[in-house]
Simulated assay, not measured.
Amino acid sequence: MNIEKIFIASDHAGFELKDEIKKFLQTLNLTAIDLGTNSSEASVDYPDFANLMAENLKNQNEYGILICGTGIGISIAANRHKHIRCALCHDIYTASMAREHNDANIIAFGARTTKPEDAKEMIKKFFSTEFAGGRHLRRVDKLGCCRAQL
């Protein structure tokens, strides 16, 4: 995968997992641009961070990681943006299929539902899996979030 930038963001519930993932990415020689939040102390709204991710993720070779309590809300909020294909993943298989079949440009996790070690394994798989194209490109295009729009 050609990765130009990786952005990472979370709400307060995902703050600790976000920090752990940032350190893990460095061990893979990847650096994440942290879009916040910067603490678990104050309650914040996950749509604000999904929207910030969408504003920053502008090119085809840019990717993101989003985290909230369950991953559900933040992935729904992210997918409201036409150029976003955010996949809420729960295991290595879903992380692989998110890239290979759906050309996801953001992976999402639930901090309260995902063990840090599992998140790390999913991240490795997500960022090492290429989009298969072919019949899958036709399907992704039907989502109305064409890769060419980035």
Results as ranks from 00 to 15, higher is better:
residue 141 D to Y: 11
residue 26 Q to E: 13
residue 27 T to Q: 09
residue 27 T to H: 11
residue 15 F to S: 03
residue 144 G to T: 11
residue 143 L to V: 08
residue 134 G to S: 05
residue 113 T to V: 15
residue 144 G to C: 15
residue 81 H to G: 04
residue 110 G to L: 00
residue 20 E to I: 00
residue 130 E to D: 12
residue 64 G to T: 09
residue 75 S to T: 01
residue 1 M to W: 08
residue 134 G to Y: 07
residue 79 N to G: 02
residue 74 I to T: 06
residue 142 K to E: 15
residue 31 T to H: 00
residue 95 A to C: 14
residue 40 S to T: 11
residue 149 Q to M: 15
residue 100 E to N: 14
residue 70 T to A: 02
residue 112 R to D: 11
residue 103 D to S: 14
residue 40 S to F: 11
residue 10 S to Y: 03
residue 13 A to Y: 07
residue 145 C to N: 15
residue 98 A to L: 09
residue 96 S to R: 10
residue 128 S to M: 11
residue 94 T to S: 15
residue 76 I to S: 00
residue 33 I to K: 03
residue 147 R to T: 14
residue 43 S to E: 03
residue 47 P to H: 03
residue 145 C to K: 15
residue 131 F to M: 06
residue 10 S to N: 04
residue 11 D to I: 08
residue 86 C to E: 03
residue 36 G to M: 07
residue 79 N to K: 03
residue 39 S to M: 10
residue 120 K to R: 11
residue 139 R to M: 13
residue 36 G to I: 08
residue 58 K to Q: 14
residue 105 N to P: 03
residue 132 A to S: 13
residue 147 R to D: 12
residue 88 L to Q: 04
residue 89 C to G: 07
residue 105 N to G: 09
residue 94 T to H: 08
residue 88 L to C: 07
residue 38 N to D: 11
residue 149 Q to R: 07
residue 138 R to N: 08
residue 79 N to R: 10
residue 61 N to W: 08
residue 132 A to D: 06
residue 144 G to D: 14
residue 84 I to E: 01
residue 112 R to K: 15
residue 31 T to F: 00
residue 90 H to E: 13
residue 98 A to W: 01
residue 14 G to K: 10
residue 149 Q to W: 04
residue 99 R to M: 12
residue 75 S to C: 05
residue 20 E to F: 02
residue 83 H to A: 12
residue 147 R to A: 07
residue 68 C to W: 03
residue 10 S to W: 02
residue 19 D to V: 09
residue 2 N to W: 03
residue 81 H to M: 07
residue 143 L to G: 15
residue 61 N to L: 02
residue 29 N to R: 06
residue 66 L to T: 08
residue 38 N to T: 13
residue 144 G to A: 13
residue 29 N to G: 02
residue 74 I to Q: 01
residue 133 G to L: 10
residue 5 K to W: 00
residue 16 E to K: 12
residue 27 T to I: 11
residue 14 G to H: 08
residue 25 L to R: 02
residue 109 F to K: 12
residue 84 I to A: 02
residue 59 N to A: 12
residue 122 M to W: 05
residue 21 I to S: 00
residue 93 Y to G: 09
residue 24 F to M: 05
residue 19 D to R: 15
residue 52 L to Y: 07
residue 45 D to R: 04
residue 82 K to E: 15
residue 77 A to K: 01
residue 65 I to E: 13
residue 102 N to T: 14
residue 61 N to Y: 12
residue 17 L to R: 11
residue 109 F to W: 09
residue 46 Y to G: 01
residue 76 I to K: 05
residue 45 D to Q: 00
residue 131 F to T: 12
residue 76 I to C: 00
residue 13 A to P: 11
residue 129 T to E: 09
residue 53 M to R: 10
residue 25 L to V: 00
residue 99 R to K: 15
residue 114 T to D: 10
residue 33 I to N: 02
residue 69 G to Q: 06
residue 146 C to W: 04
residue 145 C to Q: 14
residue 143 L to R: 10
residue 4 E to G: 06
residue 46 Y to W: 03
residue 4 E to T: 02
residue 126 F to H: 08
residue 137 L to D: 04
residue 97 M to G: 01
residue 79 N to M: 10
residue 125 K to P: 01
residue 126 F to W: 03
residue 16 E to C: 04
residue 54 A to V: 12
residue 32 A to V: 00
residue 72 I to N: 09
residue 101 H to R: 13
residue 20 E to H: 14
residue 86 C to I: 01
residue 125 K to E: 07
residue 21 I to Y: 01
residue 35 L to H: 13
residue 39 S to G: 12
